[in-house]
Design a protein around this nucleic acid. Sequence first.
DNA 1: TCTCCATCGGAACGAAACGTTTCGTTGAAT
DNA 2: ATTCAACGAAACGTTTCGTTCCGATGGAGA
Lengths: 199, 199
Amino acid sequence: MGEIADPARKSIGARRNLDSAEAILEAAEAVLIEAGYAGFSIEAVARRARAGKPTIYRWWPSKAALLLEVYQRQKRVDLPDTGSLQEDLVGFLINLFTHWRQTSSGSVFKSLIAEAQSDETAAAALAGYAGGRRTHTGQIIERAKARGEIAGDIDPGVVADLVASYAWRHLLINRLDEPEATIRKMVRYLLQGIEAPGR
Amino acid sequence: MGEIADPARKSIGARRNLDSAEAILEAAEAVLIEAGYAGFSIEAVARRARAGKPTIYRWWPSKAALLLEVYQRQKRVDLPDTGSLQEDLVGFLINLFTHWRQTSSGSVFKSLIAEAQSDETAAAALAGYAGGRRTHTGQIIERAKARGEIAGDIDPGVVADLVASYAWRHLLINRLDEPEATIRKMVRYLLQGIEAPGR
DNA sequence: TCTCCATCGGAACGAAACGTTTCGTTGAAT
DNA sequence: ATTCAACGAAACGTTTCGTTCCGATGGAGA
């Protein structure tokens, strides 16, 4: 298994071979799924894609760049819009965890985080993505604020940061199978606080 | 710079040379600080420690094991005990971020998380540590619960998970310089919730 | 039509780090 | 005095990296 059936693709001469680029990206994703980040080498990707290593290095300057493009190709998880912040957050997290578990995007994202610890390009990309205002969590919270569901002096960025942090850590320590009840508890604490009443 | 002045240590013969073990652990920490996780190789550690590679492999089966021991040697950050959960949490996070920035422990912990993505030993160690009940955050929250400061039906594990997640993500995306005001906001949201009043 | 030339897959390269083996030396235990 | 485990050092074969060649392919422009 794991071998590609068709022979090497035709070269198209003076233009970039989009078939090769596609095959390389698909192979990179497949290698990540089958062998994990530990087995993710440029050589393995080239073999899997029936491509030459120089072809990969011509278009992606580093392993991090290839990882980043594989990550960006992932289809994003749906944004729930139930009109309730609590249901939106719980639904989003469950969708996200399921998506991360059932597709390769969890592996890809984990690998990107790992790569960012030794590659400046990946680190910059990750920081830029994490700090952006258009994250899914950020949108859910901004919508709730527009509905007046959360207090006016709440900083949506800080809340989004907290929710994203929860998701990241569960991805990194392989706890994506958290029961819905636990996720629901976490969201409830965030919405209603944890202080004892009467304080 | 970076060279060690003294000549090779004396061998002690038939017993484990604790001086060598100490020199290797110190060298591992130094290499991690000076060259980062990217430059952290067993060979570099052996050179820095004036030790032989077999000596390292004799006592640490993998790079992850060495990283783990370096991490465990780190002195832990103080646990504030002000009698106020809010002050304890803010103080702990500020202490932790400062400690991570000013010592090597931030680099070591980041490297351990990265290594856990490709090494099963590191992954197990990390999951065990993260899931343990005796984390610092967990202790702060358990104490607050004993004081009756938080509601009785609150699950301390979930709260600790949330706070630790916030710290992890800020470490991983190099945002340990978060202003105290932001950290204070986050803790306030967690304690008091974010819902608009009157709901 | 014909020549140019960027791109292709493939083979090979040097450098670096891996993990292992072998060597001669050291010094505590017997 | 002898034994023996651990030491530092050096060398080994392997893997992956990133690069450099090569012949072949096929679109673009003369």
